[in-house]
Amino acid sequence: MDYALSEEQAALVAAVQGIVRDHGAPPSDARQSFAYFDASLQAALQGGGFLDAARVLGALEAALVVMEAATAPGAAELGASALVAPHLFPSAAPNGPFALIDAAALGKAHRHLPIAKTALITDGGDVLVLDLNGVRIDPVDSVYAYVYGRFAERIDLRALPRIPDAAPLLRQWHRVALAAEMAGAAAQAVAFTVEYVKTRHVFAKPVGAFQAVQHRLVQCHQAALAMRYLTLKAAWAGDAYHAALAACFAQQKASKIVFDLHQFNGAMGITNAHLLHFWTYRLRALQAEAGGVYASAHTVANALWGGAGP
């Protein structure tokens, strides 16, 4: 595939970048928090139709939107709205934002559940659709930069509308979505750190002038770049194999990126006053989703070498 952006795609990316710029400075109360859901960012993306890019333009454009929007310090529900729902509901989708849930883990905490309007629940091979209006949700405190919540009441799955055999499609686009968010967050975390090491001086020179820092930072940059290309390819190819490949790569690289970037930000990197954790902890959260690298690697392995391994 050709990774160069068309004029239309470049304009779309520039528009999202403009919105992200407008949401670049978290309010002081959010700055000190672990989780920061930026409702204004969500509204701007949703209201502007950016999260409908998959329907209007295509999955590649939707992945570009998610990647760019994930560079904002505040979290929004991006991937499920932009990449999962349009493939599950090609014409009229239920209301977003969405929470993606596995029925086997119904009682656990779920990302975006407190702000979601609809939950998409994989149940074996099917997907159940749960309208969250009136459903009681308990917020769950988490360090993972997203808002999490769990059901405060019993959910009767048997009563929910069911989309037969849609679970593989949901899992596929969930992987593209998380890879896209990871690519955006990783690129921004690297850019943030590059700026920091250029301005922070030790021994009379910038931290970023030391090769010990430069070389590991370069590795992070390489990984973020490769995440981007694999994500674009997965969105373009539109199959489960490429989706798993992109997720497998992003999920295996995340730990090292997170560790190194915090290290280069020194003591500031382990404070909540610094913005870095908003991106790195989103990386950590997504690293574990959809079965984590274990499941994505095995999906790749099964596609390449047959078998239905773990």
């Binding site: 160069a4 490769a226 790569f249 095995h298 070498w305 078998g307 391994g309």
Partner: peptide, 28 residues
């Protein structure tokens, strides 16, 4: 058929595909 080996092989394959994407983009 070994789960550990399959995972390692797939992880390396994902890295190889990332390399192919990087090369392809540069040559384009």
């Amino acid at each position: 058929d070994d789960a550990g080996f399959r995972r390692r092989l797939a992880e390396i394959y994902a890295r190889l595909e990332a390399l192919r994407a990087l090369v392809s983009n540069m040559l384009d």
